[in-house]
Design a protein around this nucleic acid. Structure first.
Length: 268
DNA sequence: CTAATCACCTGAAGGC
DNA sequence: TGCCTTCAGGTGATTA
């Protein structure tokens, strides 16, 4: 479900809603959703700050860290009460104030870790796509000598953290680059254009509070708006908004991949 | 190193 | 209606 803009939206809301809350207890309805390192407990820990890296949320506690990945269908909802019996409710975090942080996750892929050191969880997570250290020069340097397809590279979180299937397809369209383009055939102009496109697409999506296709919700249970602005993602068989060609959908790395065959010419 | 495949899960949608 | 297949925004492990 959520990529960087959705997680960023959730992080902002959680900062407003639960910073300074003190955990009272956790109820694990689906135990695999929550793991804690040996000897650590969440009880009495206060939330000092909430950070994000790629698609991960990091709760900085007065001791320890809570690291969260929502994967495909995870949702974090802040509530005043505990629902009696919700089908997809997996974890219930109770605060001493009486508030609740509820973790819903239909497909049960999401994970929440209590750890001494966030790097234990984030060791394979690369530079965040909207951080200041991710620059055009850095991007160009990362692409140097690479032989894989550009979309495969962008999907791999140890390269750049935060991009997923939706925003990669949208960024490649914005930059007019075919998703199967081999990296070492990109020229400097294209690399720069792609860098600019990635940032624009992500910041626009954040402004729209993310994209709700099926499961993504904000912490109050609301939806994002960015699905209204998608130009290629899930627009297969519809006309390109630039040139009227029919948007195609192929499989790349097992993922649905959308592009305009006219605007994003394949270089061979 | 890359690439492909599976595994983890549940549900929706489409074909017959 | 029902059965079967495929697909879904993610990632880690394993195998080639």
């Amino acid at each position: 479900m959520p990529e960087l803009p959705e997680v960023e939206t959730i992080a902002k809301e959680l900062r407003e809603k639960i910073v300074n809350e003190v955990f009272s207890n956790v109820e694990s309805i689906w135990v695999r959703s929550f793991t804690q390192e040996k000897g650590l407990t969440l009880t009495n820990r206060r939330i000092i700050a909430i950070d994000r890296r790629g698609k991960y949320l990091i709760f900085n506690l007065d001791k320890y860290y809570l690291v969260i990945h929502l994967r495909m269908t995870g949702q974090l909802i802040v509530g005043a009460s505990k629902p009696s019996r919700d089908r997809y409710l997996r974890l219930v975090f109770k605060f001493k104030s009486g508030k609740y942080l509820l973790f819903y996750d239909l497909r049960k892929f999401g994970r929440i870790y209590l750890t001494q050191n966030p790097e234990n969880v984030l060791k394979n997570v690369g530079v965040d796509a909207i951080s200041e250290v991710f620059t055009a020069d850095k991007f160009s340097e990362m692409l140097n000598g690479k032989k894989s397809k550009i979309k495969s590279f962008l999907l791999d979180q140890k390269n750049i953290a935060g991009l997923g299937n939706i925003y990669i397809d949208e960024s490649l369209f914005e930059a007019r680059i075919h998703p199967e383009t081999v990296i070492n055939s990109l020229d400097d102009g294209q690399k720069n254009k792609l860098f600019t496109a990635i940032r624009k697409i992500l910041f626009d999506a954040i402004d729209n509070m993310g994209t709700t296709i099926s499961d993504y919700k904000t912490t109050g249970g609301g939806f994002g708006d960015h699905q209204e602005y998608l130009k290629v993602y899930q627009r297969q068989n519809q006309p390109c908004i630039i040139c009227d060609s029919i948007i195609e959908k192929i499989k790349l790395n097992g993922r649905g991949t959308h592009f305009c065959p006219q605007c994003q010419k394949k270089i061979t």
